[in-house]
Nucleic acid binder design. Structure first.
Length: 220
DNA sequence: ATTTGATCATGT
DNA sequence: ACATGATCAAAT
């Protein structure tokens, strides 16, 4: 699929997907549907990227560079409640330490998101899971402030060497969790005295309560 | 090893 | 029941 040239074109393609099951979409694209997502956790997201013409899979860029839009699927239950926290990006444990919030990876990624809800209760077979109505979102002033607050708190802990004290429970809307192949993976970080150490790579995630509010604003 | 896409599955 | 911590696959 070629990349959409305009936001309008992107949203039209998105509309065309609403109501389809993953099985129907996979058949259109000639893709096989896995029996479960245990070993294909990103399958649905990548299928939808392909359907919409996202051009930068596996690159550190927005999904639609020309439009500056990031695509995120959002697994929900039948009541519209997010089933999972939403992965945003990896956390820089070294390097860009004096970064301002406005320049941060998190802020840039979240500044323009195309959310695509996906009815994905685990009791529903993968092929029968239904694609919802996608919508464009930009954080309002209140949401932006909550995100910035949590980001600054977490970045302080990282730069002050508190990486191994950070747990998922930190932060109101944004949390820091492991993001690695397994718990033995290591990357560079700062220790409690500022010395270089090796630590488990982390990523930023949006908590479900936050994404639920985003959905409510749009559908209520 | 990193960054993309996330969901799994156990502990609380 | 739910969130936290752990994990899987592909591309680079």
């Amino acid at each position: 699929m070629n990349p959409p040239k305009t936001t309008n074109e992107l949203m039209q393609r998105c509309q065309a997907l609403a109501g389809l099951t993953l099985g129907q979409l996979a058949r259109q694209l000639g893709a096989a549907v896995p029996a479960n997502l245990k070993k294909d956790k990103g399958w649905a997201g990548q299928l939808i990227e392909q359907a919409l013409g996202a051009s930068s899979a596996s690159k550190a860029e927005p999904d639609f560079p020309h439009l500056g839009i990031e695509l995120k699927t959002l697994p929900i239950d039948q009541h519209g409640k997010p089933l999972e926290s939403t992965y945003v990006c990896v956390a820089p444990l070294t390097g860009l330490t004096q970064q301002r919030w406005q320049d941060s990876w998190v802020c840039q990624k979240l500044s323009h998101v195309l959310w695509l809800p996906l009815l994905a209760e685990r009791s529903i077979p993968v092929a029968e899971r239904v694609i919802g109505t996608g919508f464009l979102w930009q954080p309002d002033a209140r949401e932006m402030q909550l995100l910035q607050q949590d980001w600054e708190e977490l970045m302080d802990l990282i730069t002050l060497g508190g990486i191994d004290q950070i747990r998922g429970a930190h932060g109101q809307v944004l949390q820091l969790r492991p993001k690695a192949a397994n718990s033995r993976a290591l990357t560079s970080a700062y220790g409690t005295s500022g010395q270089p150490i090796k630590a488990l790579p982390r990523g930023f995630y949006l908590k479900t309560a936050f994404t639920q509010q985003v959905l409510r604003k749009v559908f209520c």
